[in-house]
Write a protein that binds this DNA or RNA. Structure first.
Length: 715
DNA sequence: AGCACGCCGACT
DNA sequence: GTCGGCGTGCTC
């Protein structure tokens, strides 16, 4: 019964599509293009609801609407809402010539709805084929995808490609296991360490929808705490979804869930490294309601969990939470949308705190879920700082390239266990800073970051204005210093210094998961730190200035995040854990680390962003493309009143050979980028205006600039 | 994206 | 007079 062939041979064997195509052709022959809709009545159409509203999933963006197709009677049973279909699209009108088949190419899509009548004034083509009877796009998932598309000024089709996995015939053919009954309520366990912890769990267990920003205590307990929160939600008869930045973390939470839920039947792990087939198998288990708890990486944010009671995200500052496919939705935002639309609880957990999380707390949408100061002090290691200036003055340190305190700390700690050494990755471009107070140099007009254009010319990276008489807004200084990325400290160097101790490395290429509880030096780049089974005895966080000097609005936040992540792997103060960070002790992120006060840091940062008109308080859209395209899009958009346009400024050329990231010019093309900035509360109006302008331009077949809402990687 | 239709210049 | 340029617009 295969119907996939390109040969239009025996009409009898080809159900539906061909037959209706013929009918339609005869209609066209019989009468002029317009009028006479429904002449195809009498064909073998479904008796009830013979019209399918179809969402075409590939092809040009402006097809971002529903199209009506006729449902042949043979397909009636299978052509349910949510199933994948193929339809003929385009160019159908004129091809009456003999010897050629009518209709344009076959496009994939989904049936969104079955209705009784079409309001399209013309003959309907038929659904060409139901690809599979599996309803993969339910009403909830569709509504979510629509909301995400609007939020990001993107097309529904683009979002669907992120949300619905590719079909796999084998996985789809298998039944999913029957659902297990909800588990019993778990004990609060280490959640007791947070005053509001047990109450949060009680609310979940009781069917409530609590919302919290959770600042996790350093140490190894948070994966299990996630598992307990999920179990409490399952106990209420609802589902739960937790999104984490990477597969390593997902595996840790998955293991904790298996433990807490007493087996693997009630939850699934959804990560990219499963491969398409297994991933689809698990996704189907969720979609079919046989599993109601999901932990996974960012694509799992769309998982169609039935009767969702809790959405969670861990470490929302990690860049992996932002999808790199258009329209680049961020897991935090998608889960926020789900929490609102699906009326669920919300838990954002982090060792630190992003400015966005601080905003959720500040505007009262979520409650802080934090431990008392004494708990924090006991769980966190002791933090010592070594000033860069001190390193320079200390002759011994300069020779050894490590300050004395760091040497002593390592030597001492190595008698008690492994020592972690965090070394920034190379390739960070430092930004310009005041020589006296080291505040970032910002544009006097729009507060964008100043950049050195060539030899001595300064210009703003946002609005492009030249700066000829810069002076520091903080201290009045007039001299800038451009910092240079220093040499990377290598594992070999440390190996020579401590010949008796094994040296392990973990970085982009080889990421270690765990290291045993034995003396060893573990050299790692930020984000790749292995977990030490008994906690590290100490950690060195080297070259802090390289993290702090990044030309990014989030440099401080990001540096603090990297440090907290590494320091959280070190034994607590009570167990002798010690961290040495080489960075200016006067810098705010450094002070926040020493006090272990990420919430305070984020609150201050948020206040400052508000004052300077930075995201996330102000909302922004970035528009990048060829100069005319950018200008035209902005001119055509009916932007909310008071929208500021910064730029356009030329973007750096893409070096050939390097994989191109979205929003970057193709090699050889010169692109401009403008930033649109609106006041708080106008973010969705901005997205809607840009989306409308994009659609309008695309309808005329013009090249569309790359639009990004809330870009986080700007100056 | 394709592929129509549609309204102005070089040609038999 | 006709053929044909590719500039707008539609595709169920």
């Amino acid at each position: 019964m295969s119907s996939d062939n390109g040969r239009p041979e025996p009409a009898a064997e080809e159900p539906g599509g061909e037959q209706l195509a013929l009918i339609r052709e005869s209609v066209r022959k019989a009468k002029a293009p317009k009028a006479k809709p429904r002449t195809w009545r009498g064909a073998a159409l479904a008796r009830e609801l013979p019209v399918a509203k179809v969402l075409v999933d590939k092809g040009p963006v402006h097809l971002d609407k529903l199209w009506d197709y006729a449902v042949p009677a043979e397909m009636d049973a299978e052509a349910k809402p949510g199933v994948r279909v193929r339809v003929r699209f385009g160019a159908g009108t004129g091809k009456v010539r003999e010897g050629r088949r009518e209709g344009g190419g076959l496009l994939d899509g989904y049936i969104v709805e079955r209705v009784a009548e079409s309001d399209y004034r013309g003959p309907l083509a038929a659904v060409a084929q139901v690809l599979s009877p599996e309803p993969v796009l339910g009403p909830g998932l569709l509504a979510l995808c629509r909301a995400v598309a609007d939020r990001y000024a993107g097309s529904l089709a683009d979002v669907l490609q992120l949300a619905v996995p590719k079909r796999n015939v084998r996985a789809e053919g298998e039944p999913s296991p029957p659902p297990l009954p909800p588990p019993g309520a778990p004990a609060a366990g280490s959640w007791e360490r947070y005053p509001a912890g047990p109450g949060f769990l009680d609310a979940l267990r009781g069917g409530g929808t609590p919302r919290a920003v959770w600042t996790a205590l350093p140490g190894p307990h948070w994966p299990r705490e996630w598992a307990v929160a999920v179990a409490a939600t399952l106990a209420s008869g609802r589902g739960a979804l937790v999104v984490v930045p990477d597969g390593r973390t997902a595996a840790r939470v998955d293991a904790a869930l298996t433990e807490v839920l007493g087996g693997a039947g009630r939850h699934v792990l959804l990560t990219a490294d499963l491969g398409p087939e297994e991933r689809y198998r698990r996704w189907l288990a969720v979609s079919r309601g046989s599993v109601r708890a999901v932990v996974g990486t960012r694509a799992a944010m769309f998982a169609p969990v039935r009767d969702l009671g809790l959405v969670g995200i861990w470490d929302d500052g990690d860049h992996s939470h932002s999808d790199d496919h258009a329209p680049q939705p961020h897991a935090r935002d998608v889960l926020l949308l789900r929490a609102v639309h699906e009326r669920t609880g919300f838990l954002l957990g982090d060792l630190g705190r992003t400015v966005e999380a601080a905003q959720l707390v500040e505007n009262g949408w979520a409650r802080p879920l934090e431990a008392d100061r004494e708990q924090v002090r006991a769980a966190a290691p002791l933090i010592r700082t070594v000033d860069e200036g001190e390193v320079a003055r200390d002759a011994e340190a300069r020779a050894a390239r490590l300050p004395t305190l760091a040497w002593q700390t390592v030597r001492d700690a190595l008698t008690r266990g492994p020592v972690l050494v965090q070394v920034p990755r190379r390739g960070y471009v430092p930004r310009l800073a005041c020589e006296r107070c080291r505040a970032a140099a910002r544009c006097a007009h729009c507060a964008g970051p100043l950049e050195a254009r060539d030899a001595d010319r300064l210009a703003c990276g946002w609005c492009g204005r030249a700066e000829t008489s810069w002076h520091c807004a903080e201290c009045g200084g007039v001299r800038l210093r451009a910092r240079i990325v220093g040499a990377r400290r290598t594992a070999e160097e440390l190996g020579r210094a401590f010949p008796a101790v094994p040296v392990r490395t973990s970085g982009r290429d080889h990421v270690l998961d765990r290291v045993p509880d034995r003396p060893a030096l573990v050299v790692s780049t930020p984000g790749a730190e292995p977990v030490a089974d008994g906690g590290y005895a100490a950690a060195l966080l080297l070259d802090g200035w390289a993290l702090l000097g990044r030309p990014d609005l989030r440099a401080g936040e990001e540096a603090l995040r990297r440090w907290l992540d590494a320091a959280a792997l070190v034994r607590g103060h009570a167990d002798g854990g010690l961290v040495v960070v080489t960075a200016e002790p006067t810098q705010r992120p450094v002070q926040a680390l020493v006090r272990w006060d990420p919430a305070g840091y984020a609150a201050r940062e948020l206040a400052e962003r508000a004052q300077l008109g930075f995201p996330p308080v102000s909302r922004m859209a970035s528009v990048a493309g060829p100069a005319e395209a950018v200008d035209e899009l902005i001119a055509a958009a009916r932007l909310p009143e008071g929208t500021e346009t910064l730029g356009p400024v030329p973007l750096p050329l893409t070096e050939p050979g390097r994989p191109r990231r979205p929003g970057e010019p193709p090699p050889g093309e010169e692109w401009q980028r403008a930033l649109l900035r609106v006041r708080p509360g106008q973010g969705s109006a901005l997205a809607a205006a840009v989306k409308a302008a994009k659609a309008q331009r695309l309808a005329r077949g013009e090249k569309d600039p790359a639009v990004r809402i809330d870009p986080f990687d700007i100056g």
